[in-house]
Amino acid sequence: MQPPKLPAQCPSCGSGLHVKALHCPNCSTEVNGSFALPVLLMLSPDDQEFLFNFLKASGSLKEMAKLLGRSYPSVRNRLDEVIARVNELEKNLSHE
C-alpha cells in the first residue's frame, strides 16, 4: 500500500489547507496550531517529483533531459510550467 499523499487543497472548496497538528512518532509529542503549507508542498506530486529530480541533477536541464529521455526544450518547457504554477501559488497566498 502506498503512503497517503499530503493533500494541499480542500476537497470541499478548493482553498489551500493549513497544518493543524504535528506529531512526533518517537515520543508522541503533538504540536497544535495553524501552519500554512510551504509553496513547494502545494504543488502536485508530479511537479514536486520533477523539482526533486531537477535538484538532484544539480539544476542541469541537460541532465534532466537525459534522465527523462526528453529533449532539452521540452524539459525547459516543463520547468517553465512549474515556475508559472509556483508564481500563481505565491500570488494567491499574498492575496489571502
Binding site: G69, S71, Y72, P73, S74
Partner: peptide, 11 residues
C-alpha cells in the same frame, strides 16, 4: 518528435 529530439542531434 521534438519532445524527444532537439538540439545537436536534430541538427
Amino acid at each position: 518528435p521534438f519532445e524527444y529530439i532537439a538540439g545537436t542531434r536534430a541538427l
